[in-house]
Simulated scan of single mutants.
Amino acid sequence: MKTKVLLGLLFLSIGVFAQDFRGKAVYKTHRKIDFKLGDKQGGENSALQKQLKAQLMRQFQKTFTLNFTKNESTYKENKALSSPQQQMGGMQIQIMGNGGGNDVLYKNIKEKRYANKTEISGKRFLIKDDLPNYGWEMTGETKNIGKYTCYKATRKRTETRRTIAFGDGDKDGDKEEIITIETVAWYTPEIPVSNGPESFWGLPGLILEIQDGKQTIVCTEIVLNPKETIEIKEPRKGKKVSQKKFETIMEEHTKDMMERFKNRRRSNDGNSVHIEIQG
Rank of each mutant, 00 (worst) to 15 (best):
K32E: 14
P226S: 06
D130P: 00
K107A: 06
K239W: 00
P204Q: 05
L81N: 11
E276H: 02
Q59P: 03
G238K: 04
G279R: 13
P197T: 08
Q55N: 13
I179W: 05
K227L: 15
V16G: 09
S121P: 00
S267P: 00
S73V: 05
T149F: 02
I178W: 03
V193D: 07
K4L: 12
N102M: 12
R124F: 01
I207P: 09
V104R: 10
G43M: 09
A185Y: 10
D130V: 07
K32N: 12
L10P: 02
G101Y: 11
R162L: 11
L9N: 06
N67I: 02
Y151P: 06
R22I: 06
S242F: 02
G167T: 04
G202F: 05
Y134Q: 08
Q92E: 14
K255A: 09
S194P: 02
A153L: 11
K4T: 11
I127E: 03
K24F: 08
H253P: 00
L9I: 15
I249H: 01
L105D: 08
F200T: 01
K128S: 13
K143W: 04
D256N: 15
Q86T: 14
K175L: 07
I277W: 09
I191V: 11
Q86P: 00
K233R: 15
T254N: 14
L52S: 04
V193S: 07
V104A: 03
K171C: 01
N45R: 11
D129W: 09
L37E: 06
F68M: 03
T158L: 07
I191S: 08
E176A: 08
E190S: 14
R113L: 05
K28W: 00
E44D: 15
T160I: 15
M1Q: 10
E72M: 04
G270F: 10
T139E: 04
G38Q: 10
K245G: 06
Y27F: 15
M138V: 10
F68R: 07
T188K: 04
P84Q: 12
K237C: 00
V5H: 07
G279I: 01
M258H: 12
T69Y: 10
S199Y: 14
V193K: 04
Q61M: 09
P192A: 07
P189H: 08
K112L: 02
G205L: 04
I95E: 09
K245N: 13
D34W: 04
I93K: 01
L203A: 12
M96Y: 10
S272R: 02
D39V: 10
A153Q: 06
Q61H: 11
F200A: 05
S83E: 12
Y151N: 08
S272D: 12
V223D: 13
Q211A: 11
A115H: 06
I222M: 03
E44K: 14
L126Y: 05
V16H: 09
K62S: 07
Y187C: 00
A54R: 10
K214I: 01
I14P: 01
L126Q: 03
T220K: 11
L208T: 09
I181W: 09
L131Y: 01
G15D: 02
D168C: 05
M96H: 05
G167N: 07
I109M: 13
Y148L: 10
P204S: 09
M257E: 13
R161C: 05
T160V: 14
L206C: 03
E252A: 14
G146D: 07
E137P: 01
K28V: 12
V193T: 05
E44L: 01
G213A: 01
F60C: 03
N98K: 12
Q278F: 12
